[in-house]
Design a protein around this nucleic acid. Structure first.
Length: 431
DNA sequence: TCTGGGGTCCTAGGACCC
DNA sequence: TCTGGGGTCCTAGGACCC
C-alpha cells in the first residue's frame, strides 16, 4: 500500500506560521515575478479565486475581500519542506529511508506495506498529527493499493476535510468504488486537459470508475500507449508505478526566469543568461554531475500594430560540449555565443533560460582525443565558490559577466522574511 | 503594464549499423 | 515482376505533474 502525504495550501501555510493573525483569513501566494496566484487558503478558494490566475486580473477583488497577498519566498518554503520530509522519514522509517519518496516540495509518497491493514487508518491519523505538531504544517493523507489510487484518496480527503479529518484509506471494494465514482477523470493523476477532453467527448467516459473498466488494449491505443495501460492497471489496484529511489540524479537541470521588465539590449540578455548558467551549474555540482549539452532559450513577446499581445515565442540554440563539465566558466563561454546568435536588435525579450542536459557523473568523465584529457583544474575553484555562496549568501561571489545592476531582475514586492534561514531575518519576539 | 519555474516519461521518425 | 531483417541512438514534440 502507498500513502501520499500532501501539505494543505503549502505556501500559504508556511506564511501563516509566522502570521498567526492570518490563521482563518484568506491568503494567496504569487508565482515568481508576482505573476500568477499559485497557492490559496480555503478561505481564498471560497471567494472564487482560481489557481493560476494572473495577479493583474484579480487585484480588484483581492483588495475588495481584504485578501493578504505574498510574493513567493522559496527560502522559507524549501526549509519548511525539509522539516516536513524529515518528520515523515523519522516516523515511517522502519527499514530504510527508501520508504519515502519526496515527490514535490509539498508532497511525498510513503510505502506503508509494513503497517497491518486494520491499522492504516489510525497510523495515518497519527502521522497527520505528528507532522502538524512538529512543523505547524497541516497535511492530507490518502492511502491506496497503488499510487494513482492513493492520489484519489488524498484528493477526496482534502475536499471533505471535516468529514474525513484529512485522512482517507481505500482498503475495501466498497470504499474504492464509491471513491472512483466520485472522481472525475480530469481529476486523476496522469490525466491532463487533453486526455480528459478526449475521454469525455469521444468515448463518454466521465468518471474514474468508468475508466477503470476499460480494456488495457483500448488504453494502449487511445491513451498514450504504455502510459494508458499503466493507468488502467493502477486504477484496478495493480501497482505499476514504483517508489523512486531518492538517490537518483536529475537528468536535466534548468534555470529560467521571466524578466522583471522587458529586455531589449544584448548586454542585459547576456547578463541574465550568465546568471542562470551560474545557478544551473551550482545545481549540477550539488549532485556531482557534469553536463554534455546545453540549450539556451529566449522568449519574445508578440505585438500587433504596436500594441502588446500575450503571445510568447520561444527560440533556442543547442550546443554539445566536447568534454562533460560542471565548470561555470566553461559553461558561460559556451552560452554567450548562443545568446549572440539568438539576439535580434529591436526585439522585446521577456524571459530567458538555460538547460543543462546529458548529465553524467563527474567522477568518470569521458575525455576527448583532440582536446586532451578532461581538465579538472577549476574544480577546487568551483568548490570554494560554492562554499562561500552557500555559507554566506548566494551571489556573494559571482562572475562579472552576470552583471552588477541587473535591472532585469524579477519583481518580488511582497515577500515575507526568510525567518528560518537568515540570521538577519529571524522572527522577532521582543525588541 | 501585466500571465511561473521546474521536471518526467513516452513515441515517432530519421540516420545509421551489420 | 522483383529489392531483408533486425537493431541502436538521437532528436523533436507531446502529454503530463506540482
Amino acid at each position: 500500500m502507498y500513502a501520499i502525504i500532501d501539505c494543505n495550501s503549502f505556501y500559504c501555510s508556511c506564511e501563516r506560521l509566522f502570521r498567526p493573525d492570518l490563521r482563518v483569513k484568506p491568503v494567496v501566494v504569487l508565482s515568481n515575478n508576482d505573476g500568477c496566484i499559485i497557492s490559496r487558503t480555503d478561505e481564498a478558494k471560497q471567494l472564487g479565486i482560481d489557481m493560476g490566475v494572473p495577479l493583474f486580473e484579480s487585484r480588484e477583488m483581492l483588495k475588495q475581500h481584504d485578501v493578504t497577498v505574498f510574493s513567493s519566498n522559496y527560502h522559507l518554503y524549501g526549509d519548511m519542506s525539509m522539516r516536513v520530509m524529515d518528520t515523515l522519514r523519522l516516523f515511517t522509517d522502519h527499514a530504510s529511508y527508501r520508504c519515502v519518496e519526496v515527490y514535490s516540495v509539498d508532497e511525498a509518497f510513503v510505502c506503508v506495506d509494513h503497517i497491518p491493514a486494520e491499522a492504516l487508518q489510525s497510523f495515518s491519523e497519527k502521522l497527520r498529527d505528528v507532522v502538524v505538531q512538529w512543523t505547524g504544517i497541516p497535511v492530507s493523507i490518502g492511502v491506496g493499493p497503488s499510487k494513482v489510487l492513493s492520489k484519489v484518496a488524498n484528493r477526496l480527503a482534502k475536499k471533505n476535510k471535516v468529514k474525513t479529518g484529512c485522512v482517507m484509506v481505500l482498503d475495501t471494494e466498497d470504499t474504492l468504488q464509491d471513491a472512483l465514482e466520485r472522481t472525475d477523470v480530469s481529476d486523476l493523476w496522469g490525466i491532463g486537459r487533453r486526455y480528459s477532453r478526449k475521454l469525455k467527448e469521444m468515448y463518454g467516459i466521465n468518471t474514474a470508475w468508468q475508466l477503470k473498466h476499460m480494456p488495457q488494449e483500448w488504453a494502449r491505443k487511445n491513451l498514450g500507449g504504455v502510459v494508458g495501460v499503466r493507468m488502467i492497471k493502477e486504477l484496478n489496484g495493480e501497482s505499476c508505478i514504483q517508489l523512486k529511489d531518492p538517490l537518483e540524479k536529475k537528468k536535466m537541470i534548468a534555470t529560467t526566469r521571466m524578466f522583471g521588465k522587458p529586455v531589449f539590449e544584448l548586454e542585459s540578455l547576456k547578463e541574465a543568461v550568465v546568471t542562470y548558467v551560474s545557478r544551473a551549474a551550482e545545481k549540477l555540482r550539488r549532485q556531482y554531475g557534469a553536463a554534455t549539452g546545453m540549450d539556451v532559450f529566449v522568449v519574445t513577446n508578440g505585438t500587433i500594430s504596436g500594441s502588446y499581445v500575450y503571445d510568447p515565442q520561444h527560440h533556442h540554440r543547442y550546443c554539445n560540449l566536447t568534454t562533460p563539465t560542471a565548470d561555470t566558466a566553461v559553461l558561460i563561454k559556451t552560452a554567450l555565443p548562443l545568446v549572440e546568435s539568438l539576439y535580434r536588435k529591436g526585439t522585446k525579450y521577456v524571459k530567458a533560460g538555460v538547460m543543462l542536459t546529458g548529465i553524467v557523473p563527474d567522477d568518470s568523465l569521458q575525455g576527448d582525443l583532440f582536446a586532451g584529457p578532461a581538465k579538472q583544474e577549476n574544480r577546487a575553484l568551483m568548490q570554494v565558490l560554492d562554499n562561500i555562496n552557500f555559507g554566506m549568501r548566494s551571489d556573494m561571489v559571482k562572475f562579472a559577466s552576470s552583471g552588477l545592476t541587473r535591472n532585469w531582475k524579477m519583481r518580488q514586492e511582497m515577500r515575507s522574511n526568510r525567518f528560518t534561514t537568515r540570521w538577519d531575518e529571524v522572527y522577532e519576539v521582543k525588541k
